[in-house]
Design a protein around this nucleic acid. Sequence first.
DNA 1: TACTAAATTGTAATCATTACAATTTAACAC
DNA 2: GTGTTAAATTGTAATGATTACAATTTAGTA
Lengths: 136, 136
Amino acid sequence: MDKYVKILKNNHIKITPQRLVVLEYLDKNCTHPTADEIYSYLKKKNPSLSKTTVYNALETLSKHRIIQSLTISGSELRYDIDHGMHHHFYCKICGNVIDIELKCPNIEKMKQFGHKIDEIHGYIKGICKNCLKREG
Amino acid sequence: MDKYVKILKNNHIKITPQRLVVLEYLDKNCTHPTADEIYSYLKKKNPSLSKTTVYNALETLSKHRIIQSLTISGSELRYDIDHGMHHHFYCKICGNVIDIELKCPNIEKMKQFGHKIDEIHGYIKGICKNCLKREG
DNA sequence: TACTAAATTGTAATCATTACAATTTAACAC
DNA sequence: GTGTTAAATTGTAATGATTACAATTTAGTA
Ligand SMILES: [Mn+2]
Ligand SMILES: [Mn+2]
Ligand SMILES: [Zn+2]
Ligand SMILES: [Zn+2]
């Protein structure tokens, strides 16, 4: 059975071609794309695709924790099929979002505050290696 | 000399009454307010205040690192006069943003990636203690 | 194959933020 | 204190991401 069909089936989500292509796109493009980037790319081969559907699919996949959304850029959400806890770097020059593989040793300590914790995000912002080289 | 005047002077920022009241508001309201919350409150006693000016003031203060902006909610920026590194909790029910006083032991490790680091944000999302109690 | 709740689609609305041009003003020199 | 000027403020319009909504289509099931 197709990998993406299986993911949706396991989560009791209706299987639609639109959800499958969004999921496939995120699986093959781990660049933390925006809804618009996903839509613009998929629209080429799926001319009937609606941007609302992309938003709906991303919402559904997020709700089921199949993907996670990032608020790192401030002006738009970005999506990540890697829903495990990892940190992110945002480059203020090129706008790229890069994975930062660091374990957060504070997770246990956070429980002491008495809040119910659903998500933990580590956002680092600055200028990426490449832009540093290019800009000098 | 007035506390807020001194802050602007030290940063070589022109002293305007608008910047002073925004700064004072953030100093006395450490609730991580939005631009609109700041504007709506200050507008009452400063009827000529423009929302654009609030945005401009927040931008200027952020650029000079007098305040920091948070992208934790995803749909709007929030502002914090405490520009030191500390973490934040966002309650999905009441929308409150709460300080989480935790040191991040990863800061040193982040330098190894070769990027220039300007900001580090730790965002925790879930349901706050109070809402847990109320909602049951 | 027929039924139905849910998903998709296209359009319009919303909301935070930014752009811009006209007016006002803070800082500085005299 | 007065005059000068670059910068700040103001109000309005534009932008851009996201959401609301109603009509149409479709996935899952019997
Ligand atoms: Mn990632
Ligand atoms: Mn804070
Ligand atoms: Zn870069
Ligand atoms: Zn709460």
